[in-house]
Design a binder for these strands. Structure first.
Lengths: 225, 225
DNA sequence: GTTGCTCCTCATTATTTGCTCACCTAGGTA
DNA sequence: TACCTAGGTGAGCAAATAATGAGGAGCAAC
């Protein structure tokens, strides 16, 4: 089940969005200040963000830019004036879609759905990172054509890390991402999977050292040493 | 670099599409009337067409039909109402894909990308079935000329798997595909059919091992070990 | 009804994967 | 240095999943 992050300072509006999203079967979380978004995303998983333009704390455009530095998640901007949109497009600040107030709740849901569908499409497409090639349809990973035989969890793990090279993923976040149910496992379990993943990658490309651990924080995928 | 033809009468929308396609590295050309499309394509090259349904001059459906008479290029229909899509599919007018308004700009790009990729794949990659030959009309399967005597379910199963070699099919998907009615069967039933299928294939070609199980995910057809 | 065929299910066994524990190593810090 | 916390690792167990064999239900032809 996908999770939507609502960033909106008007409580009534946020509530309305939340209600409709819930009805459509999405999870949601609400933040009413711009300056808390990045922090939240660093520690929690979310599949899409509805981002109001006018925000206390930090402006929507700025939030968008900052989030874009570490995440490619779909961002839908919500703005009061239609004319703003033209300006926003010009700015190329990295949003995926735009909705004007006043909007119908169902329009929001439709946009959310459309954007999440796109992401799913993207994921089945094989993302290529420096010789690595992950194909979700085939549950198959290769490095420069050579097959890396991974289990389901290992594949998901690699997929998560490789999706945003350089970004540090904490163990909590990794667990939340891999176990959609509320299963609780030990931190060491993640380590264990990382170990196996490293081993299997090393079997194919011994000279490579792509999974880095970040002391006190988590793990990161990065190719250049 | 691929070139996209945008056929859309609403200038704002066309501009938005163009902006995103350009950013994604595609060339584009814009036409705002249906009756100019055929003429344009006769004299200019384009790799894909985004075609609005409601058009002045000539209706989108009609444009699609006419273009199909001389070109197999990917055509993505853009329509305002989701319900229209059902009707369009029924018409079999030859489009490759459909996008509903409101769409996200990036969804358009994703669809364009996916469709162009498919064409490229078609051109380069012939489906590898290495000696297997399925005749759906006669429900008859052969391997290098030798008959494999399959029941209906077994045949459908093999057909599904072989259609996309390498792809992992989950049991849910297999069931949905084989049982078009809403019959519910146990997961183990699929296993059972897989077993029989393997046995029958082995009877004809013992050295072959083409149906692989993927732990936790499903089954996959693959010839090369 | 009986026969023969196909399809489905259940129970059992075999296999694979995932998780944790305990212990060890390495990084950070006073 | 000495200490503390975080990460790495191998072994072993538990859980999840798959393969298999036997048997029953449904159905059409006779």
């Amino acid at each position: 089940m996908s999770k939507v992050l609502i960033v909106e300072d008007e409580p009534k509006l946020a509530e309305l969005m939340a209600a409709y999203l819930e009805q459509a079967g999405y999870e949601h979380h609400h933040i009413d200040r711009g300056d808390q978004v990045v922090d939240y995303l660093k520690n929690n998983q979310a599949d899409l963000m509805l981002l109001d333009l006018m925000l206390p704390g930090l402006d929507g455009v700025e939030v968008c830019k900052q989030v874009r530095q570490f995440s490619g998640m779909p961002i839908i901007m919500v703005t009061a004036k239609a004319e703003e949109i033209d300006r926003l497009i010009g700015l190329e600040m990295g949003a995926d879609d735009y909705v004007c107030k006043p909007f119908s709740p169902r329009e929001i849901v439709a946009r959310v759905k459309a954007n999440l569908r796109r992401v799913e499409l993207d994921q089945t497409e094989a993302p290529k990172t420096d010789g690595f090639d992950l194909d979700a349809d085939r549950l198959r990973a290769t490095y420069k054509g050579e097959l890396i035989d991974l289990t389901t969890v290992e594949f998901q793990l690699l997929q998560l890390l490789i999706k945003e090279p350089g970004r540090v993923f904490g163990r909590d976040m990794i667990m939340k991402s891999i176990y959609t149910d509320s299963r609780v496992v030990s931190d060491r379990t993640i380590d264990s999977h990382i170990k196996k993943l490293r081993k299997k990658i090393a079997a194919v490309a011994p000279e490579l050292n792509v999974i880095h651990s970040v002391y006190g924080a988590g793990y990161r995928f990065e190719n250049n040493d």
